[in-house]
Amino acid sequence: MEIKCKQENEATVVDLIGRIDTNTSADFQKELEEYYTKEGFSLILNFENLDFVSSAGLRVLLLIQKKANALKGKMLIKNVKPEIQEVFEMTGFSGILTIE
């Protein structure tokens, strides 16, 4: 998996390429840690080139969402492929995450 972070105004935009699964979720969490632990953070995850999110990846997304709730931050997920969107809907994540 590749992770590219860039700053756009107040927000950190993260382009994700490949898969977030058991093998890559720990790196994904670590790479984003510096952004989602700040008070009032704003994180935009671009899923345009992301093919797969496993349970381990969903746990990291849930963790970031919890941090967002606690630190008055925001996480926005954009350009989700239909197969990942289906997983979000079936697992109830679409009601928890902000997806555009």
């Binding site: 699964d21 058991t22 496993s54 349970s55 381990a56 969903l58 746990r59 849930l62 963790l63 969402q65 919890k66 697992t91 109830g92 928890i96």
Partner: peptide
């Protein structure tokens, strides 16, 4: 078989 950490994810969701 479900993906690794699926049951932990379910518990995380319930706690949330």
């Amino acid at each position: 078989f479900v993906q690794e950490e699926t049951y932990a994810l379910y518990r995380d969701l319930m706690i949330m």
